[in-house]
Amino acid sequence: MKKILFAAIVLTALTCGFSGASAADYPNRPVKIVVPFPAGGPTDIVARPYAEALGESLHNPVIIENRGGAGGSIGATEVAKSTADGYTLLLGTVGTQAINEALYPKLAYDPAKDFRPVAILAAAPVALVAHPSVPANTVAELATLAKKRELRFGSAGNGTPGHLTGELFKSASGIALTHVPYKGSAPALQDLIGGHIELMFDPLQSVLAHIRAGKLKVIAISSAIPSPLLPQTPTFGASGVNVETTAWWGLFAPVATPDSIVARLAKEADSARKSAAVKQLENIGLVLQGTQTPEQQTKFLQDERAKWGKAVRDSGARVD
């Protein structure tokens, strides 16, 4: 009996050893992270420093591929259908992993069934910014202005945290706004700075430089407490609008990716937080997330899907 048990243990160890062997030489070629938004946008800003740090610790180049469009679902679909060998990963967002499912009638991937989380990397509040010529500096002034003329708000696309925060803001405040989706943050910012639209909701890191340069003014942000980078800017809550949202970014792998590879990546993503390039993200408005166990991650994602699914239904948000 003991012998059999021993043999079983040895066998298990051996098979584990063998299944680990394929992962032991992981990675032996470049790893690709698909960023489902155009380069230069908020998601890309998070992805670049992490890719650099990961590339260093994995001793292999980590390449970023920008696949924008349809609120990130084009890039997410690509990763969902790719080989689950750890060489194709997704820089998933609150949009691709929680919002799109409820928003897009025909989504080609299932955020829960097609992906497994590796690590939640960073989070940021969503800022409501306006063209400097807009005669409103607070949410209250915005409400008065919206009664006099039509106000349009841009977002990085349907299903992005900017879009949904805007929709939640509309239904919580009763202010009438028209949503105009763009293909990423940069073209939306271009139209906002050019004065073709009045407002925009976008994660803080992509608008902060323009706020500081005076090209845009910030009206409020979506976090529970004011951002240390913009201490004067009120939260939506303080402005009398009960909206609190957080945009977040995480690393995801196709669901069939082996445990050992995911564990390795999670470990390296953890240590990447300490690298100088990643630390820098804190200066531009991002909050780096602490380590989470896989159970915590699953719970977090479940909660997020429920929360945003409800937000989509309650606000009546739709694909514009």
Binding site: R48, P49, E52, A209, H210
Partner: peptide, 19 residues
Amino acid sequence: AVMALMVGAMMIHGIVPGP
């Protein structure tokens, strides 16, 4: 797209592209 990649290169070096 090329300019967007240049933004990526700037970000890595801690230069936030902007006005």
